[in-house]
Amino acid sequence: MKSVANGSAIQRLSPGATMKQFSDGLPWKRSLLLAAVALSVLPACGDGEESAEVTARRSAGSLDLDIRDVASVELSALDDALSAKIRLSKGFGVAPQDAELVGKGRVESFPEADLVLYTAKLSLEPTAGGPCGNEPVSLALSLYRRGNAERVGGALTPYCGRDVWHGVPARAPLRITGKLPVPK
């Protein structure tokens, strides 16, 4: 690949063209912002009333976890910030079974592909007897949706160590698939 000199990063950036439309409509950040506003609950405004309250878009469902087991998933999205609550019927040596796991992440948009990826990072204490031994586990959620389909698919990928979110996973990513309503 063509190399770019270190240190030139900021200098390379120059004001580009004014914002124009691109693939599939509005620029993705603007589209998310507008969608969040559109989906927010707006109380009727009259003289002297306070500004509208923006509420999170929520979605919950039970997904197949590595085919035989279940992941109960609750997602709450505010703009592109995501909160996830996940409960696994089986821990696979990397997570507690039937415990509520929480994490923060993002709603990542890929407008040129009409795809959304829900991500979250769940930091867990060590699981005895698991592949990470006495180390904490960093469990990464990556769940994609095409268009407005109810079907989602993806992974819960465990890494050994606290705040370790890439590398060689502790075990093969746990497969997650199923139907999850579009957050609203």
């Binding site: 063509k2 190399s3 770019v4 580009g16 914002m19 439309q21």
Partner: peptide, 10 residues
Amino acid sequence: QSVVKGVCED
């Protein structure tokens, strides 16, 4: 191999 401020022309 460039990153330019602003949105790509579609």
